[in-house]
Simulated scan of single mutants.
Amino acid sequence: MAKNSGNKSKAKFSVYIKRYWQLYAMLFLPLLYLVVFKYAPMIYVQIAFKKYSLVQSVWELPLAKNHGFEYFIQAFKNNDFKYALRNTLTLNLLDLVFGFPAPIIFALVLNELCFTRYKKVVQTIAYMPHFLSWVIIYSLALQLLAPNAGLVNMIIKDLGGEAIPFLNDEAHWIGSYIGFGIWQNFGWGSIIYLAAIAGINPELYEAAAVDGAGRFRKMWHITLPGIKPTIVVLLIMSLGNILGGGFDRPFAFQNNLVMRVADVIATFVYRVGIKGLQFSLTTAVGLFQSLVGVFFLLMANFISRKLGERGIW
């Protein structure tokens, strides 16, 4: 009996594969990409625990001192790494506080626009900065905010004020950095929220209108609860990247006058690891960064599930 059930299962599996083999064939290249470029490089994570040498295989490298934790200890004794860790957390938290709500607010406002053509124009204009590289955006920032030749400061001086060091003073630099980050991403980030809003049942708005609810009431009691699961998922993913962040943006905006607040982990790894050839040290830093990101991701998902939300798994 068990043999017959096993044969039936094999026959069903064979029929299933014959019917849907195209779908699995389409998945082959993405899976190959993940294996080659994402999982295979994980072999070299062990460099963080070994004394790296260009002439030896990664498997033959000798173990570092302190049971392999020499470079982790060295990193936490390095003042430049401490500054980079502090700056990464500070800038990413500010991005989260000010940047995360921006696409939500924009999507809510855009959803309330009645004129379809105007709505499309606004969407297109808001999306465009996402396709600009950070080098181009920093060039625009220089043209606008440079102390002497920047358009904004020229207007301020023409009005009798003093030039503001947007890119040369630490506090002003942080504001400029966060502001340009919001400007580049809020339009693109709103796409997901607009898609979530489109999935809300229109009958809810009709029922609310019958009850006398205005636009703000509909937004607060229907639209926001309707996109709440999407907000929670994206917030969890953002918290998982709290110690991450890209390299392009901080590297493009950095200058010698603001390095104390502008040097982040990504630029520290580039400067010390690639230019300074300290591969074991910066591999240890990268591994620490990834582990902290996973911890925040798991904690955020756990708290979300405890509060009754779906989470990401």
Results as ranks from 00 to 15, higher is better:
Gly240Ile: 14
Ser290Trp: 07
Val135Gly: 10
Lys120Cys: 06
Asn168Gln: 13
Ser304Arg: 04
Leu144His: 05
Ala25His: 03
Gln22Thr: 06
Glu309Asn: 01
Gln143Ile: 11
Ile137Ala: 05
Leu243Trp: 04
Pro103Met: 00
Ile125Asn: 09
Phe100Asn: 13
Leu63Trp: 00
Gly99Cys: 02
Pro101Val: 14
Met1Asn: 13
Leu142Phe: 02
Gly240Val: 13
Gly181Gln: 08
Leu110Arg: 01
Leu108Glu: 07
Phe37Gln: 03
Asp263Arg: 06
Ala266Trp: 10
Gly68Ile: 08
Pro225Val: 01
Pro165His: 00
Met299His: 04
Gly181Leu: 11
His172Cys: 14
Arg217Thr: 04
Met237Asp: 03
Phe98Ser: 11
Leu307Ile: 02
Leu291Pro: 01
Ser14Ala: 15
Glu170Ala: 15
Gln22Met: 08
Met259Thr: 14
Trp313Met: 10
Glu309Ala: 11
Ala262Lys: 05
Asn148Ile: 00
Lys10Asp: 12
Leu34Ile: 07
Leu194Lys: 14
Pro229His: 05
Gln278Ser: 12
Ile125Phe: 07
Ala75Phe: 05
Val232Asp: 15
Leu108Cys: 06
Trp134Asp: 00
Thr230Lys: 02
Tyr52Ser: 02
Lys157Ser: 15
Gly214Asp: 00
Ala208His: 00
Val135Ser: 10
Ala146Glu: 02
Ile137Arg: 07
Val45Thr: 10
Leu291Gly: 06
His67Gln: 15
Ala75Cys: 05
Met128Thr: 14
Thr283Ala: 14
Lys3Ala: 14
Ile236Leu: 05
Tyr39Asn: 13
Gly150Cys: 08
Leu61Gln: 02
Val58Glu: 05
Tyr83Met: 15
Gly68Asp: 01
Phe72Cys: 12
Ala209His: 02
Ser238Thr: 14
Ser5Asn: 13
Trp183Tyr: 14
Leu277Met: 14
Gly150Ile: 03
Ala266Met: 15
Tyr44Asn: 13
Phe216Cys: 08
